[in-house]
Write a protein that binds this DNA or RNA. Structure first.
Lengths: 341, 341
DNA sequence: ATGAAAGCGCTAACAC
DNA sequence: GTGTTAGCGCTTTCAT
């Protein structure tokens, strides 16, 4: 069953008494065969445990049947879930997934992406990528889809509209009656400016003050670190929005150990709706960006772009809509009721 | 800069006025060259934007410089962190990472692994894999390392000793003075039996009762679901161990909405030390299994196995030791003090 | 329906 | 130090 060397198409051809061309056509189901040949082929393949060498195949076809996925931080549940969705549709379409975790690095990104580009038929990359790398990707002559908002014209993109995401949250907070709101952003992120715009759109119109802060990183640790700076000042915000759930959760934890009650003393909200946000106390109000569905969508999209030159420039399919998830962490003090999600 | 077709080694040879063999040797830095040739090569490569075709290379070398990683559930932070560590050392060694999320499936696993096996020089697979698939992997003539405990002899394995992990936690709970302890396991997992053994080792010796429960899945949702069954009975355990932090966190949340105070009414502990465990309330007592270091270790190990036939059967390096992380969720009622981590 | 032959881009002997 | 050449395993015309 398992010989020393792996069987090649030639071994199969010999065992079945046909030519290698016939074997090739058979395994690629490119035509029909006489019953006798078909049977001999089938058993020869089983006997030898033959399977196609993808490298050899890809040499002649020029296709790799693999897709690259580059994420900023695989430990962020948002990205892990994007990957889950992407993995699912890749597998269903007989594609393999090559992944690289950029680990939030802003430098050496192209070097990390280059091998991916060489080994795949298309790339899915997080949008927080240096401009020169985006240029390089664009000239790659290979489908590339960005995750999140586009910073540039002419690039294909899948993800929520950051302006809309932020507006949604701002709208809720205004409706709750808060009049001074803090936003803990992450300046290096591509979406940060859009988030701010979405926030201002709503808050300015409502006459609500917006205080801007910046986290060191889009992580819980950074959320913890920023909390004192935000809260230990006379004009502290009544409600604080974290640029993602991780930041919000870190912020909440540190706020509590600083002696603040949430949401009574300070309301907190996040963005993403990572699974954890349901399990912290109080449960975190957030905006669902449908990470897993995003992964499925982006993978579906890139697969359709491969081999379908026409769809490469088309605008994305009806894009995903963010959904406000109201939980306990951002209810106005005087309105708190016993409604737990 | 970006011509229609990508440049080949032949284009470079022509542009530099040398043979393709010279180009090949140059890009693989296999020897030194005359200054003039070196310079011409360098500029020709830059000019044409040439890069090696990995498929062509791998056809002749038989190597892919890629490693496959198969995890049970990439949305489980434990696995995401294993992947983070694995990614890091893969990149540092010029390997690419091919990932497949098995999504906790028990069937069709081989079909998901087959393409990975064909495209990589080695495989890292979660150990909760059907026996026949393990057999197949073993006959693959390719380095395979399992994550977690081995169920079989002769397979290379990286991960914590499950018996030890469980004993550690049991020891702490005994020391806290609990006399009736529940364990919410996951029967389908390879490590479950070992965990149980580790628990019994310690608890039996201490005369502490162990109540066994099973979760539907190793997830927070399953942890929630099982809570009522465990807690709404006259002989409910004083402390409950979740088979991982996800289960423990789900359990805690549901326990609280059932009206139990933690740890006063019921103590809870988990296993893994996922990042979230610090941020739930109360903070979760758990055992750190060093997920990220595990990922680094396993990747280091498999890279050394490739091309080093000798090390393929060696026993693993000094294995990782689990570490008890004491937080608030499992302190005995009468001993609770103000020590927060 | 089946086969012969020409490569895909590259590395590795082996010559020079 | 540099070039020639023979494949690696496969798909794909083009014959038959």
């Amino acid at each position: 069953m398992s010989s020393r060397k792996t069987a090649t198409i030639r071994d199969v051809a010999e065992a079945a008494g046909v030519s290698i061309a016939t074997v090739s056509k058979f395994i690629n189901r490119q035509q029909s065969f006489s019953a006798s040949v078909e049977e001999k082929l089938r058993s020869a393949i089983a006997e030898l445990g033959y399977s196609q060498n993808p490298a050899a195949r890809s040499m002649v076809t020029g296709k790799t049947t693999a897709i690259g996925l580059a994420v900023m931080d695989i430990a962020n549940p948002h990205y892990a879930n994007v990957m889950k969705g992407a993995n699912r549709v890749a597998l269903a379409n007989d594609y393999n997934l090559l992944v690289v975790d950029l680990e939030e690095k802003g430098t050496g990104v192209r070097e990390m992406l280059e091998p991916l580009a060489l080994r795949t038929d298309g790339l899915i990359v997080s949008s927080r990528i240096p401009a020169d790398v985006v240029d390089w990707l664009a000239g790659l002559n290979k489908p590339v889809v960005f995750l999140g908002q586009p910073e540039r014209q002419g690039v294909v993109c899948v993800g929520m509209d950051s302006v809309e995401v932020a507006s949604l949250l701002a709208g809720y907070l205004v409706q709750q009656g808060f009049t001074r709101i803090g936003y803990v952003g992450y300046g290096r992120a591509a979406w940060n400016a859009e988030r701010l715009r979405g926030l201002h759109d709503v808050l300015d119109a409502a006459g609500v003050e917006l205080m801007e802060f910046d986290a060191e990183a889009p992580t819980s640790e950074a959320g913890e670190q920023v909390a004192a700076r935000v809260l230990l000042r006379p004009d502290r915000p009544q409600a604080v929005i974290g640029c993602n759930d991780l930041v919000a959760i870190g912020f909440m934890t540190e706020a509590r150990s600083l002696g603040f009650k949430i949401p009574q003393d300070v309301a907190v909200a996040g963005i993403d709706n990572i699974p954890t946000s349901r399990y912290v106390s109080p449960s975190l109000t957030t905006v669902d960006v449908f990470s897993e569905a995003t992964g499925e969508t982006v993978m579906t999209r890139i697969i359709s772009m491969i081999g379908d030159e026409a769809s490469r420039k088309l605008s994305p399919p009806p894009s995903l809509k963010p959904l406000l998830v109201v939980r306990e962490s951002a209810k106005r003090q005087d309105r708190i009721a016993a409604t737990e999600v």
